[in-house]
Amino acid sequence: MTRLLATLMLVTLTLPAQAEPVSGYAFLDDSTREMQDDDFSNPGMVAVDRGAELFHELRDSEVHSCSSCHGENGEGMDIKAIARYPVFNANLGGLVTLQERVNYCWEINLDRFPLTPGSSELIALETYVRHLAKGETVNVQTDGDMAPLLARGEALYNTRFGQLDMSCGHCHVQHQGQMLRGQRLSQGQANGFPEYRLGRGRITSLQQRLTECFVSFRAEPFEEGSPEYDLLELYIMSRANGLEIETPAVRF
């Protein structure tokens, strides 16, 4: 019995700190949680509504909108499939983020000029689509074709950048739970993206957040939609596997 207990304790002590994913929601104060939980007070719902308009919009002489193929309220969309993003799709050239999938449908299925990565239309549509899967569990593929891509994303996550010479992992893995001045460091999870940022007063995609991080370390950011950001997005989203989608989350 003592031996068993000792072994158990040893196992607990040697588990890596990030074994259990924790949503950024757990780090919020009550008033911010209430704001997120109530659709009427959640400021991110404006982007969902804007996305819904775009989802139904017919331009010029068009006969199809997104809703023609995906259902009036997106009910034709498989929410389990949305929770898999970013996905590996050999027909679409490999790694595909949710924004890139939306842009692909925009260009190929609606025959429109593609949108710029990070444009407000794309973020609104991404927010709308991901909100359909709210409550679903993030479930990014980690094996097969994804394994080597994930390893590259993880390497970027642990690379030091900029004048501050820090990596993402320094704050969100090594020092998670500790105080950075008055802020408790969360795991930097992505299950709530696109999310509404109270400090910025706007809806923010994950890749826009990455740019904010790079700027704050005084590093040269990558482009939205670049291979580096897509790999980081893949790795970061895979860390959220098992967490519920909260889009649109509310954060500072």
């Binding site: 900029g162 004048q163 590093a219």
Partner: peptide, 9 residues
């Protein structure tokens, strides 16, 4: 020695 330091720095 910095990696990808932003231009202004």
């Amino acid at each position: 020695l910095a990696n990808r330091i932003a231009g202004e720095f």
